[in-house]
Simulated scan of single mutants.
Amino acid sequence: MFSPQGPSLRELAIQALSSVERGYDLLAPKFDHTPFRTPDGLLAATADALGPLGPFDQGLDVCCGTGAGMRVLKPLCQGGVTGVDFSAGMLAQAREAHPDAEWVRADVRDLPFEQAYDLAVSFGALGHFLPAERPALFSGVYRALRPGGLFAFPIAAPPPISSVWYWTLLGFDLVMRVRNAVWRPPFVMYYRTCPLHEIRDDLTAAGFTVTTAPLPALGEREDGSPRYGLVLARRPSGS
């Protein structure tokens, strides 16, 4: 799962026993050599799906990490692009990889932007927020977008209960719950707390109009349904 340039088991253990912010500060120099980085295929599929919905001017990557989302935003946005994250270590890596972008350190549950962007994206970050925290996140993205602006992020279809992947994710979440019950500070990272119907409800409550689009390039499940879809949450033009 990890390249030789990736973190050791000891480094991962130290990260897992840290807070989310401190953990990612520690992991940042080797993050792009782990399977946690958003795969290029997912970035490409997202960019392909968003292309016909543009053009866009200003772009924002929410929970940008080391800046992988810039591979989506830069080709689509005619104006500037910005990444926001609360990990100084991750932002340092992003700044080195993409010096032409703007980087902002902030808690995305309290985004410091007001009607500044036309497109916002996010990749692999929702599991770091408890369900009770999503309304603040989505409301902040809503405020950050101009009227008519779009918030887009890919989401995986839930694996069937008969699959190894289902039980792997369930086991991971159970381990994390036990860890957070007995160890402080907590490290919030869950894979099964973001079902689409709850995300759709939270986005709608924040004011978005929500649709989804399949990402067929990423394959199909056994029943023929797509393995991934793209959530498209638009701030109404008159808002």
Rank of each mutant, 00 (worst) to 15 (best):
M1A: 14
Q5W: 01
Q5P: 00
G6C: 02
S8Y: 04
Q15C: 09
S18M: 12
S19Q: 09
S19H: 11
S19N: 10
G23D: 04
G23M: 03
K30R: 15
K30N: 03
F31A: 00
D32F: 06
G41P: 00
G41C: 13
G41A: 15
L42E: 15
A47M: 10
L50E: 14
P52E: 07
P55C: 01
F56I: 02
G59W: 03
L60Y: 09
D61K: 12
V62T: 12
C64N: 09
C64E: 07
M70L: 14
Q78A: 13
G80Y: 01
V84S: 07
F86C: 01
G89H: 09
H98T: 14
H98V: 15
P99D: 13
D100W: 01
E114H: 13
E114V: 04
Y117K: 09
D118C: 00
L119V: 14
L126K: 13
G127I: 12
H128Q: 15
F129C: 13
E133C: 09
V141I: 12
Y142A: 06
R146S: 01
F151S: 00
A156C: 06
P160E: 04
T168Y: 13
F172N: 01
F172V: 00
V175H: 10
V175K: 12
R177M: 08
R179I: 08
V182F: 13
P185K: 09
P185I: 08
P186Y: 06
P186C: 05
Y191A: 05
Y191S: 06
R192T: 10
T193K: 07
L196I: 06
I199P: 04
I199S: 05
I199R: 02
L203S: 03
G207H: 07
L218C: 11
Y228D: 06
G229W: 07
L232R: 06
A233T: 03
A233D: 01
R234H: 00
S239Q: 10
